[in-house]
Design a protein around this nucleic acid. Structure first.
Length: 836
RNA sequence: GCGGGGAUGCCGGAGCGGUCAAACGGGACAGACUCAAGAUCUGUUGGCUUAGUGCCUUCGGAGGUUCGAAUCCUCUUCCCCGCACCA
C-alpha cells in the first residue's frame, strides 16, 4: 500500500525515450494477429499438435487469476509448438449452460441467455487481451442450438445403442439446486455446489447414461495415461473395482445375493445385514418384528446425514433367517445402518471374526463370533478376540476347506458355490451410471416425447434441435414445464397429443465432447467429421484444474470410448496428457477471496505492468503445477526485466557477437527448448534472464533474433514489437524456432567465464579481508594471469565488477608490479591477486 | 481406514547419486551514484576460519545402501489433497 502511494507521487520524473506504451503495443499486435489470421489452424498441414485448456464456465465476474494462469500455460506451449513447426490447434469455447447463469438471471430478473452472452463477450475480450493464440473461428458455446443439437443427437444415438435408459430409482436431490445430481456431484454427502447442503434421497424416474458399461476399460486405461498421479489415483478410486464372489442365500424359498471379497470366510458367517434403504427390505420383516424395524427406520430417517456418518453401527433383527449356501445353517438377518444400499446387492454377509464392522455389530448385539481364519504363523492368537482379524491366514473350522490359505480358499469356496449353483465369482464397481436428467431450464432439452400410447419416444433427428423456449417461469418447479408451447407436442410415432420431456441434460454432457467439436465446429450435418477428428484428435496437451478428476474427466473418457465403439473415432483416450496447474493463492497465502480482499485481478495486474510481464511472471514463480502465492514484487521485477530488454533493444549495436555470447545463446537455447517442452517454464525464464544479463553492447542481429524468439512464447507482444523494430520478416509468432548450433557452444569459453567469475569473487574476498585486517580499504588490484588465459580477463569489466581499478598482467610480464610475489601463486584458471 | 502428493536456507522455490552451503526470484543488510529519496548498479545474507583458504553443521527425524546422498532404500513424524461404514 505504502509503496503504491509513494510510487504515484514519484511519477512524472522522466520518460526515457525507450519507454514504450505497453497497452498500445499489446493492442497493436492483438489486432494484427487477428487481421492476418495468424493463429487459424487448418487440417492436414503437417504434424499436428492439439493444445487445449478446459473451456471455462463464463461467470459474470470475468476472468480470475486462475483462468489467466491456465490459459497462459497452454498458450506458451502452443506458441512454442507452432514455432517448432507443428500445425497447432488451440481453440477456446464456453461451457455456457448451467445453474449459476440461471440463478443469476432469476436474481437480476434477466434471462440466462442475455446474462450468458454478456459474460462470454466479457471473457473473450479479456482473453484476447492476454495475447492468447486461439483460433477464434472455432469458438463454441454450449448454449448455442448449433452445439446442443448434437448433444441431443448423441443422446438419441446412445439411446439407440442401449447406453441410455430411463429408470426409477433413488436419486440425489439438492434442494438448493432444485434438481437431482449425478453421483459424481455429491461430495461427502453434500452437493458439489453447495457444500453445506446435504443431498436428499428421492425416488424419481430419470435418464441415465450407462457409464458402468465401460467401467473396466475406464479403469484399465488409466495406467497408460500421462496424467498427474493423484488424478489417476482418484479415478481408480472412483471406479473402485473389487473382485470377489456373489453368494446366494436362500430366504423363505427366495434367493438373496450378497457380494463379498472374502469368500474364504464364508464358514464364519453368523448373520446377514441388509441395508436400511434396501427396496425389498419389507419382505424380510416378520410380523412380530415389524414395529421394531419401523422404529429403527424412523429414527434413521430423522437423523441428519452428517450424524449418520458419525453414528455407531446399529440395527435390529428382521425376524427372518437365511440358509447358509454350503452348510444349510440358519442365519439371522438383521437390518443395519452401515450397509450401503446401492453397492453390491445392498446386503452383506457378516463375519464378525474377520471384519471389524461386523465385529462391532456382533459385540453390540451379542451375536456369535466364529473364527475361521487362523492368523499366519508367528502371530499370537488371543483367547478372546478384541478386534477382528482381517488379514489372510490358514482356514480352520471350515470343514473340507481347513488348512487352505485365504487366497486358495477364496477360489475353492467360490468354485464350490458355483458347483452347487449358490454363487459365482463376480466383480463390483463403485462407479454408478451417470444420472443426466436435471430439473432446470438452462441446459440442453432432452429430446424425448411422452405419448400415452407409445410411451417415451425419441424426437426424430430431422426435428433436432429441440429448442429451449425463451419464455418460461422460474421458481415454480421445473421451468420447462411452465411453457405450454414447449410442453405440448405431437407424438412422432402416432401423431397424437404428447408431452415433451421437461428435464434438461447435466451440463457435463456438453463438456464430454466439446473437444471433438473444436475440430469441426461449423459442421451443420454432423457433430464433427470423422476425418477431421481423426486428424486433430487426441488432444496432445490438456490443461486444467484438478477439480474435474471424477466428473468431466470420467465422462469425457466414457464418451470417447462409446463414440469409438459407434464408429465415430479411432482412438481410445481423448486426453493422453493432462496437466494440472497449481492454485495461485493470495500474497498472504490464503485462497484468494473477495471477503479477505487478497484477490489479484489479472487485467489489473497487466494494465499496470503489461500483459507480457504478467504472463512471464505467472510461470516464473514455480513449476506451473505447484501451488504458489502471488508476489507483487516478483511481478514488478519481471516488469523491470522487460523494460530493460526494451532499453537494450534500443541501444544495442548490431555487429558481431562475441564467441562468448554466441556460445551462451546456443547453450541457453538448448536448455530453454527442453524446458518449455517439459513445462519447466520457471527454469526457462531463469535461463533467459541469465542470458540477457550477460549481453554485451554489441551483438549480431541474428543472435538477437534468436533471443527474441526465445522470449516470444512468454512475452509475445514485446517479441513482435522488437522483431519488427529490427526488421524481422513476418510475425515472430510464426517464425521458426531457432536450431541449436552445437558448434557454437564453447564449453571451454563458458568455463573460462566461470573462472573469471570466481576470480571476481576472490578479489572481493581479498579486498574484504585486507580491509578487515589492515583497517583500510585497498585502492588498486593487480592480477597475474597465465599468458594463454589473458584475453579472458578484461580490466575494464573487472574494474566495474569490483569497483576498483584492476590492472591485469601476464605472469611472465617483466614490467609487472608485484611487490609481494603474488604472481607466483597463479595457476591455470586462477590468477594471482595483489591488492594495495 | 484406503489411496495420492509433499516437507530444502528469512520467504517463495529449483535441484532428485559426485561439479551442492545448494540455481533463481523476493525480502533484509551494506556499498556506489544522488543534496536527498526513488530508480539503477555492486556486494553480503548457516557457522568458524583464511590475502582469494580450509573446516564444521545443514535440505522434517532415525537408520541403511554407496568410495560418495538433499538426491536411492527402510522405518518414523508432520502437512496437504481425494475417497470413505464399498462388504
Amino acid at each position: 500500500m505504502i509503496k503504491k502511494n509513494s510510487k504515484k507521487n514519484m511519477k512524472n520524473s522522466e520518460k526515457s525515450k525507450t519507454e514504450i506504451d505497453f497497452s498500445a503495443m499489446e493492442q497493436k499486435w492483438q489486432k494484427r494477429w487477428e487481421r492476418d489470421k495468424v493463429f487459424e489452424a487448418e487440417e492436414d498441414k503437417g504434424k499436428k499438435f492439439y493444445v487445449l485448456e478446459m473451456y471455462p464456465y463464463p461467470s459474470g465476474s470475468g476472468l480470475h487469476i486462475g483462468h489467466a494462469f491456465n490459459y497462459v500455460i497452454g498458450d506458451i506451449l502452443a506458441r512454442f509448438k507452432r514455432m517448432k513447426g507443428f500445425n497447432v490447434l488451440h481453440p477456446m469455447g464456453y461451457d455456457s449452460f448451467g445453474l449459476p447463469a440461471e440463478n443469476a438471471a432469476i436474481k437480476s430478473k434477466s434471462h440466462p441467455r442475455i446474462f450468458t452472452d454478456e459474460a462470454i463477450s466479457n471473457f473473450i475480450r479479456q482473453q484476447i487481451s492476454l495475447g492468447l493464440t486461439y483460433d477464434w473461428r472455432r469458438k463454441l458455446q454450449s448454449h448455442d442450438p448449433e452445439y446442443y443439437r448434437w448433444n441431443q443427437f448423441f443422446f438419441l444415438e446412445f439411446l439407440k445403442k442401449g447406453l441410455v435408459y430411463r429408470k426409477k430409482s433413488s436419486v440425489n436431490w439438492c434442494k438448493d439446486c432444485s434438481t437431482v445430481l449425478a453421483n459424481e456431484q455429491v461430495h461427502q454427502g453434500f452437493c458439489w455446489r453447495h457444500n453445506s447442503t446435504p443431498v436428499e434421497v428421492k425416488q424419481l424416474e430419470q435418464w441415465f447414461l450407462k457409464t458402468t458399461a465401460y467401467a473396466d476399460e475406464l479403469l484399465k486405461c488409466v495406467d497408460g495415461l500421462n496424467w498427474p498421479e493423484r488424478i489417476k489415483a482418484m479415478q481408480r478410486n472412483w471406479i473402485g473395482k473389487s473382485e470377489g464372489s456373489e453368494v446366494i442365500f436362500e430366504v423363505n424359498g427366495q434367493n438373496w445375493e450378497v457380494f463379498t471379497t472374502r469368500a474364504d470366510t464364508l464358514m464364519g458367517v453368523t448373520f446377514l445385514v441388509v441395508s436400511a434403504q434396501h427396496p425389498k427390505l419389507d419382505q424380510l420383516v416378520t410380523k412380530d418384528k415389524r414395529k421394531e424395524v419401523d422404529d429403527f427406520l424412523k429414527k434413521l430417517r430423522s437423523t441428519k446425514q452428517e450424524d449418520i456418518d458419525q453414528m455407531e453401527k446399529e440395527g435390529v433383527f428382521t425376524g427372518s433367517y437365511a440358509k447358509h449356501p454350503l452348510i444349510g445353517e440358519k442365519i439371522p438377518i438383521w437390518v443395519g445402518n452401515f450397509v450401503v444400499a446401492d453397492y453390491g446387492s445392498g446386503m452383506v454377509m457378516a463375519v464378525p471374526a474377520h471384519d471389524q464392522r461386523d465385529f462391532e455389530f456382533a459385540k453390540k448385539y451379542g451375536l456369535p463370533i466364529k473364527e475361521v481364519v487362523m492368523p499366519v504363523e508367528g502371530r499370537k492368537i488371543e483367547n478372546r478376540l478384541i478386534k477382528a482379524f482381517t488379514e489372510y491366514g490358514k482356514l480352520i473350522n471350515s470343514s473340507k476347506f481347513d488348512g487352505l490359505d485365504s487366497l486358495g480358499a477364496r477360489k475353492k469356496i467360490t468354485d464350490e458355490l458355483a458347483r452347487v449353483k449358490k454363487g459365482r465369482s463376480s466383480i463390483q464397481y463403485k462407479l454408478r451410471d451417470w444420472l443426466v436428467s436435471r430439473q432446470r431450464y438452462w441446459g440442453t432439452p432432452i429430446p424425448i416425447v411422452y405419448c400415452d400410447d407409445c410411451g417415451a419416444v425419441s424426437v426424430p433427428e430431422k426435428d433436432l434441435p429441440v429448442l429451449l423456449p425463451e419464455k418460461v417461469k422460474f421458481g415454480e418447479g421445473n421451468p420447462l414445464a411452465t411453457s405450454k408451447e414447449f410442453l405440448e407436442t405431437k407424438c412422432p410415432k402416432c401423431g397424437n397429443k404428447a408431452r415433451r420431456e421437461t428435464d434438461t441434460m447435466d451440463t457435463f454432457f456438453d463438456s464430454s465432447w466439446y473437444y471433438l467439436r473444436f475440430t469441426d465446429n461449423m459442421n451443420k450435418k454432423e457433430p464433427f467429421s470423422k476425418k477431421k477428428a481423426a486428424y486433430w484428435m487426441p488432444v496432445d496437451f490438456y490443461v486444467g484444474g484438478a477439480e474435474h478428476a471424477c466428473m468431466h474427466l470420467i465422462y469425457a473418457r466414457f464418451f470417447t470410448k462409446a463414440l469409438r465403439d459407434f464408429g465415430y473415432l479411432n482412438f481410445d483416450e481423448p486426453f493422453p496428457r493432462l496437466y494440472n496447474q497449481g492454485m495461485i493463492h493470495g500474497e498472504d497465502w490464503h485462497v484468494m477471496s473477495k471477503s479477505i480482499g487478497n484477490v489479484v485481478d489479472p487485467l489489473d495486474a497487466s494494465s499496470k505492468y503489461g500483459v507480457d510481464a504478467l504472463r512471464m511472471f505467472l510461470v516464473s514463480m514455480a513449476s506451473p503445477d505447484k501451488d504458489t502465492n502471488w508476489n507483487q514484487n516478483g511481478l514488478e521485477s519481471v516488469s523491470k526485466l522487460i523494460k530493460s530488454m526494451v532499453h537494450y533493444a534500443h541501444t544495442v549495436k548490431f555487429g558481431n557477437s562475441s564467441k562468448r555470447i554466441e556460445s551462451k545463446i546456443h547453450s541457453t537455447l538448448k536448455s530453454v527448448s527442453e524446458q518449455i517442452e517439459g513445462l519447466k517454464y520457471n527454469s526457462a525464464v531463469i535461463q533467459i534472464r541469465a542470458l540477457f544479463e550477460s549481453f554485451e553492447p554489441e551483438i549480431s542481429k541474428k543472435d538477437f533474433q534468436i533471443f527474441l524468439k526465445m522470449i516470444s512464447p512468454f512475452c509475445p507482444h514485446l517479441a513482435e514489437e522488437l522483431w519488427e523494430k529490427i526488421g524481422g520478416k513476418g510475425f515472430i509468432s510464426l517464425a521458426e524456432w531457432p536450431k541449436v548450433d552445437e558448434g557454437k557452444i564453447d564449453l571451454k569459453l563458458e568455463e573460462a567465464e566461470k573462472a573469471v567469475e570466481k576470480t571476481v569473487s576472490d578479489i572481493i574476498n581479498v579486498l574484504n579481508l585486507v580491509k578487515e585486517k589492515q583497517g583500510k580499504e585497498a585502492e588498486k588490484v593487480y592480477l597475474y594471469v597465465i599468458p594463454n588465459e589473458i584475453e579472458g580477463y578484461d580490466s575494464t569489466i573487472l574494474s566495474r565488477r569490483v569497483n576498483k581499478e584492476v590492472v591485469v598482467y601476464a605472469v611472465n610480464d617483466k614490467q609487472k608490479y608485484d611487490p609481494s610475489g603474488k604472481a607466483g601463486k597463479s595457476k591455470p584458471g586462477k590468477p594471482g591477486i595483489y591488492v594495495e
